[in-house]
Amino acid sequence: MTIAADISLAQLPLREELRGQSAYGAPQLQVPVQLNTNENPHSPSPALSADLVSKVEELASSLNRYPERDCVELRAELARYISEQTGIEFSRENLWAANGSNEVLQQLLQAFGGPGRKVLGFQPSYSMHPILSAGTQTTFVNCPRNKDFDLDMDAALAAIDQEQPDIIMVTSPNNPTGNITDIQDIRRIISAAPGIVIVDEAYQEFADTPSACELLVEFPTKLVVSRTMSKAFDFAGGRLGYFVAAPAFVEAVMLVRLPYHLSAISQAVAIVALRHSADTLATVAELVSERERVSAALRSYGYQLTESHSNFLFFGVFHDQHAVWQEFLDRGILIRDVGVKGYLRVTIGLAEENDAFLAAAHDIAAKNL
């Protein structure tokens, strides 16, 4: 028996701006090929798994104590990793970590957004940006991307001038489209911004372009670069996101973070994963190669694609993309309908998963293109 199952959300005293909204979520269906959530399809290496088990066993006897509150050791490991990745020297004071990049973004919005403040975004982009804005009572303003899903820089600069946003969010590589925003365009946006700019680089390890981290010395009071271990790392289940910024931004989110927000186990297993980064990142080159193979095949079947710098492809064009999504599902292939008219998104999986997807895509192209 479920208590009060007949009570609807409409009967609760919900904040007005949340009424009629939908919760974030991708379908979680048990089918042979699941290519809808942009995870790395490779399991953690045996060496990493063994170290994780050993570390958790070591921690077990001390779980009666609260974790290290400021994640000092983890932030030092993240600083080492991002310094190696970018060639720029960062210290732990430049790094902040939380439960996935979603919590990172939420904390930044709690600190710099709120009632009477605005976020400017460029949709279609990560669907959590408007949701997180609503959750922090920050007004989300959309400046639509152009027909190729790139930023329209004239429109972007005009929107900044007109709206005077407190926060600007730029996702590069962009989700769900996979394309990048050139670092010079990011520089122009930061220069024009009256407030802060958050560059969401969740998929940066899959790109062959410079990181916005290169601009942190130039714009220390304006720029925050958000990252995650959920994509390139085989670590989506570990839920670890972080940002790189001037130490003052770390001080700012410490004002709003929950006490002991990262568990001792979360911190420890992330440290282990970072120390095995050579193992985990070895899969990135393979996924990029598979991305190019799948992209070429889809183009040969007649699909249109945006140029992807991520671990997924955005393809179409369909009269009814949801009906096509269902056709893939009927063949045991789960991909993502993100609600952009005419387009679907597919995550790059293992070679055999990609082969199954391409076989379905070949048959579906004959009917729908």
Rank of each mutant, 00 (worst) to 15 (best):
M1N: 12
G20K: 05
Q28M: 14
Q28Y: 15
L29R: 15
T37R: 13
P44K: 04
S45M: 11
A47Q: 15
S49Y: 13
D51E: 12
L63A: 00
R69M: 06
A76D: 11
I82C: 07
Q85V: 08
E93A: 15
N99A: 09
S101Q: 02
G114Y: 05
L120T: 01
P124C: 06
S127R: 15
P130A: 14
C143S: 07
N146I: 06
A158I: 07
A158C: 13
I160Q: 02
I160K: 06
I160W: 07
E163F: 14
D166C: 03
P173M: 01
D182V: 01
V197N: 10
F206V: 00
E214W: 07
V224R: 04
S226W: 03
F233C: 14
G238A: 07
Y242R: 04
V244M: 08
M254D: 15
Y260N: 15
H261I: 07
S263W: 13
S266Y: 08
A268C: 15
R275F: 12
T280Y: 13
A282T: 02
T283D: 14
S289Q: 08
L298M: 12
Y303Q: 02
E307Y: 03
H309Q: 02
G316N: 06
F328A: 02
V338Y: 07
V340H: 11
K341H: 09
V346G: 00
L350S: 00
